[in-house]
Amino acid sequence: MDNIIYKGEGERIDKFLVGHFGYSRNFFHHIIKRKGICINNKPIKKSYKLKNGDNISIEKLERFITGEVLEDFAYIDLEILKEEYDYLVIKKPKGVISHPGSIWDVSTPSVVGFLYQKYKKLPSIGNFIRAGLIHRLDKETSGPMIIAKTEKGLSHFKKLFKEKSESIGIQQKEEVPLKKFYTAECTTTPNGKSFLDQIELPHYIQEIVYPKVPNIRKPKEGITKILSKQNKGKNIILFIEILTGRTHQIRYHLSSKGLPILGDYLYGKKDDHKLNLECSRLEFLDTNNEYIVVDI
Score class of each variant (00 low, 15 high):
228 S>E: 07
239 F>R: 05
47 S>D: 15
64 F>M: 06
247 T>Q: 11
101 G>T: 13
225 K>E: 11
213 V>C: 04
209 V>D: 01
1 M>I: 15
64 F>E: 01
225 K>C: 08
162 K>R: 13
231 N>W: 11
213 V>L: 10
86 D>C: 04
59 E>Q: 12
219 P>D: 09
6 Y>L: 02
82 K>Y: 11
87 Y>R: 05
279 C>Y: 04
96 V>G: 03
270 K>E: 13
241 E>C: 06
138 D>W: 05
70 L>E: 06
83 E>F: 03
109 P>Y: 02
64 F>L: 08
111 V>C: 01
101 G>A: 12
157 F>T: 01
122 L>S: 06
256 S>L: 07
191 N>Q: 13
50 L>A: 02
29 H>R: 15
168 I>F: 10
118 K>S: 03
14 D>S: 09
124 S>A: 15
112 V>G: 03
264 D>L: 02
202 P>M: 06
273 H>A: 08
132 G>Q: 00
224 T>Q: 02
102 S>V: 08
279 C>W: 00
294 V>D: 02
191 N>I: 07
185 E>K: 12
21 F>G: 06
269 K>Y: 12
193 K>R: 12
78 L>W: 01
175 E>I: 08
161 F>S: 07
190 P>M: 08
206 Q>A: 08
221 E>G: 04
272 D>G: 09
39 I>T: 07
253 H>A: 08
245 G>N: 05
184 A>S: 09
25 R>H: 13
155 S>Q: 11
38 C>P: 01
98 S>F: 04
280 S>E: 09
277 L>R: 00
17 L>T: 06
